[in-house]
Computed example of a mutant assay.
Amino acid sequence: MDTQPLPVKHLSREESYGYDRKTLDYIRNAAAHGLYEIRGMGAKRKLPGFDDLVFLGASLSRYALEGYREKCSTKTVLGTRFAKKPIELDIPITIAGMSFGALSANVKEALGRAASEMGTSTTTGDGGMTPEERLSSKTLVYQCLPSRYGFNPDDVRRADAIEVVIGQGAKPGGGGMLLGQKVSPRVAGMRTLPAGVDQRSACRHPDWTGPDDLAIKIQELREMTDWEKPIYVKVGATRTFNDVKLAVAGDRKAVRFIANLLDQVQGG
């Protein structure tokens, strides 16, 4: 049996046991040019995608359908309990909210068209509703965010549903930052803030701190829309059990929202 030790690879000055060359190159560029750590394009590490979904098959608790003679529908209806005008989606997959500023008006319009073609909804995001996305979206969800940037009661009434945002998967418990280079005069005007200046979004709502206050806020939104719009709450998937428990407690105190949307890691 050969007991000779394996040869040791000697690293050059440009390499490291802890970091590969790509990481070292990023660190050097950041040190030389001051690269900002917060940027778009999703997470930096590989995360599960649609190809990783595992569907629960039917057995005893959920009776199986005969595929050749029984149809399986993906239609999803939201708001049947309390909203006068529930929304109906062809698929249970929606386009999450992204701010006007982070995205251009053209992209917001494109998302609206794509969602309409697929029979689902798209969402406004921080900064308010643009005319382009309202005209191109068959079903548009209006976000009520902690920052209240661009929040407009008239636009709330023009939307098809309301999403109360408590947190998002990319940074639950944290706010947001729109760099000044993206704050054009139009974006600044909708947010009533100066153009060209970094704009930070708050990490929590300024007018409530718990389920009791959440109930009051949703009651305000219902009265604002004459009880027409479905309302649901979006939370980052963190302390999910306790968060949903508090949301349900708020429901017993007349919150009456239809669902909790759990936003995962990649959602930003």
Rank of each mutant, 00 (worst) to 15 (best):
S73Q: 07
G42Q: 02
E220C: 06
A32I: 07
S137D: 01
L140V: 03
G267W: 06
A83L: 03
L214Q: 03
D126C: 11
K108N: 06
V8L: 11
R204Y: 13
V165L: 08
V248A: 13
E133Q: 13
E223M: 10
G180W: 09
V141M: 08
R158D: 12
L140Q: 04
T124W: 06
K234S: 03
V141A: 08
D213Q: 14
K108V: 00
W208H: 09
Q143T: 13
K9Y: 15
T74S: 12
K253V: 11
R45A: 10
F257D: 03
H33Y: 14
L89D: 03
Q143I: 02
A254K: 12
A58N: 09
M41G: 04
Y17T: 06
S201C: 08
G196D: 05
G250L: 01
D212P: 00
P185M: 03
N29E: 15
V235T: 06
A195G: 03
E15K: 10
A115R: 01
V165H: 04
G175Y: 07
R239P: 01
E163H: 07
V248K: 15
I218E: 09
W227K: 02
K75Y: 00
R28K: 13
D251S: 10
L178M: 10
Y149A: 11
K217G: 03
D90G: 12
F257I: 13
T23D: 15
R13D: 05
G57I: 05
P185W: 10
E220P: 03
K234F: 02
D263V: 02
Y26V: 15
M41I: 15
P194I: 02
A64T: 07
H205Y: 00
R222V: 01
V54A: 14
S136A: 15
I218L: 15
K44I: 15
A188Y: 00
V164L: 11
D90N: 09
Q4I: 12
H33W: 07
G128Q: 04
V141W: 03
P153I: 04
T120S: 08
D263Q: 05
R158W: 05
K22T: 15
T94E: 01
T3C: 11
D160L: 00
R252T: 09
P211L: 01
C144G: 04
L261M: 06
F82Y: 13
G79F: 04
D126M: 14
S59I: 01
G18R: 11
R200T: 10
I216G: 04
A170L: 05
R28T: 13
A31D: 12
W227G: 07
G119K: 05
L65W: 02
M98D: 09
